[in-house]
Amino acid sequence: MLVFVIRRLLQAIPILIGVSLVVFGLVHLVPGNPIDMLMPPEASPEVIAQMKAAFGFDKPLYMQYLLWLSRAISGDFGLSIFNSTPVAGQLMDALTNTLKLAILAAILGFSAGIALGLIAGFNHNRWPDKIASVITTAGVSMPHYWCAIVMVLACAVLNDWLPAQGMGDDQDPFLDRLQYLVMPVVTLSFIPMGVVGRLVRATVLEILGREFPGALAAKGLTRWPILRHVCKNAAPPVLALMGLQFGYLLGGSILVETVFNWPGSGNLLNIAIFRRDIPVLQATILVLASFFVVLNLMVDILQAAIDPRLRR
């Protein structure tokens, strides 16, 4: 197991380097030059050259990459081209905001999905299965923004139950600020709930179709201990899916963050793309991609801890 963990950790390094190369390269492939966007059309070539030198655009590409990477590793992502504030600060704020949503939505969506999937799987083709399947199918097929808008209409416009958007003031009491979280979190939890629920159901059915659950009953185990065995067998694929889903949640949903005016990473990415704010784009993508790699690494290790056949 230890060998497996060390090997997986080492394998993550080239992946991270690859990610950084792609992130650096992709942004340079995007049409449009940030300096041209900033400079007035009548700016003299000397001033433009000066600006390029100030942001490091005059150096050869590989030097730009190494410089950017070494600074990025130490947490310095440079200044935003648009408003000259440090990128790291903006990114931190946006990520914390998104993280709040992502963690809560993951807890809500995963637990609801697992519960629905288990209920459906253990009551195959009976009414609890049908009800659970309707809910999970709705979860994966309803468009995010539509849910968000309907919810705003129902809870904030027609009734005055919840605030429609924003995240409240820091001075507000904790419980008041919590209200702002309800609608975005619920909206974001639908998809993880649906996909996790459907996978749990399918996995449980597949496992119950094998011989060993019957053999467990034959040795005298009752419903709950058998459920425990089935859950442990079902865990690896479900964990893999949850890792991916949490990764998507961290990326922030541009649509949901826009509807609820939530200043998260989705919002930040969206704005950075329109402003050609390359340092912000690079930093955001790099950090999110690294999160993804680390998440998958954790999932891999967890899976191997649960299923010994995966330790190869």
Binding site: R210, E211, F212, G214, A215, L216, A217, A218, K219, G220, L221, H229, K232, N233, I306, D307, P308, R309
Partner: peptide, 19 residues
């Protein structure tokens, strides 16, 4: 089951829990 009345299966690989 598993007390006074016990059973051996044809495919131990399938009948034992792999994890």
């Amino acid at each position: 089951r598993g007390g006074e009345l016990s059973m051996i299966f044809q495919e131990p690989m399938a009948a034992l829990d792999p994890v």
